[in-house]
């Protein structure tokens, strides 16, 4: 394979990439700095032990990480977040797929209405229902439980899952299931054996977005959790609110840890995201 020739068009792309990644880079460096270095001007971006005044060097330290995770208070939230995000993604993926499939395949009266209704829920600012949900949760005993969060996040993500998966199912020709019916498979069997494998990129994309949504969610987590079910975003904020001034170092460390799982998840599933949508067998 020959090397792609350089064109001037790649410059803006590089520029955008640099712009997007520089905050992350800043976070990475800051998480290893001591408090004075974090706010020093000009910014110090070279790690090392030579730290004469007013230079670009800073002393690397793991103190921030120890501060955040050392006392063990942050381990719980990390595990909570992982647990909740995992289950919420799975549930909304499964139910969303089935709903999306139904909307794609079944032409019942009012199907368009249902579709737009589902989409409409996304127009609602989640905060608008914060109070009723909180009330409901405490009445039913779901306040400060991981199960409650899972339920809520699944519901919040469902509209997105359904819409995305419906789009992917629309791309799968009906002939695939019909051939299976003729062979003797039930619709459910056909769904799992024949249709679902065709939308793996869709499932991956939907689960990545679902995971991100659940992982990053802050507002409801803040309202609905207090001790047991505290998730990472809440904990990170708590850390920064800990002292009178902003402690950039520990904040950066906590933030860096919180972006790690989604990044890893997306990185390891990237091959499934890119796999061709129709693998060339459908001639339209």
């Amino acid at each position: 394979m020959k090397r792609r020739a350089f064109t001037w068009a790649t410059l803006p792309a590089i520029l955008v990439a640099v712009m997007m990644l520089s905050p992350v880079l800043w976070m990475l460096l800051t998480s290893f700095k001591l408090p004075p270095d974090t706010v020093a001007m000009p910014p110090r971006f070279l790690p090392g032990d030579m730290a004469p005044e007013n230079s670009f060097w800073f002393r690397g330290t793991l103190g921030n990480y120890r501060h955040v995770f050392g006392d063990g208070d942050s381990v719980g939230p990390i595990l909570n977040s992982l647990w909740v995000a995992f289950w919420a993604t799975l549930v909304s993926l499964l139910t969303g797929s089935m709903a999306g499939y139904a909307l794609s395949r079944f032409a019942f009266r009012g199907v368009h209405f249902v579709q737009w209704l589902i989409l409409g829920t996304r127009l609602l600012p989640p905060l608008a229902v914060a109070v009723p949900v909180s009330f409901l949760f405490s009445r039913v005993g779901l306040q400060d439980t991981r199960f409650g969060l899972i339920l809520l996040y699944s519901a919040l993500n469902l509209s997105l899952s359904t819409w995305m998966m419906k789009g992917f199912f629309d791309e799968v020709p009906r002939a695939f299931e019909e051939a299976a019916f003729i062979d003797g498979y039930t619709r459910l069997e056909a769904f799992f054996k024949v249709v679902l494998p065709q939308v793996i990129p869709g499932l991956t994309a939907t689960s990545v977005l679902g995971f991100l949504g659940a992982w990053n969610e802050y507002a409801f987590a803040l309202t609905l959790t207090s001790i047991d079910a505290v998730t990472l975003p809440v904990r990170v904020h708590a850390i920064s609110a800990d002292s009178s001034s902003v402690t950039w170092g520990p904040l950066a460390a906590a933030a860096l840890v919180s972006i790690l799982p989604p990044v890893l998840f997306t990185f390891f599933t990237r091959r499934y995201l890119l796999r061709g949508i129709t693998l060339g067998t459908v001639k339209e």
Binding site: P173, A175, F176, E178, A179, F181, I182, D183, G184, Y185, V194, P197, Q198, T278, L279, G280, T281, V282, K283, E284
Partner: peptide, 16 residues
Amino acid sequence: DRRDIAMVFQNFAVYP
């Protein structure tokens, strides 16, 4: 599935 027939579609419907 109870009719004992087989069908070949226009767009082949071969599972990728």
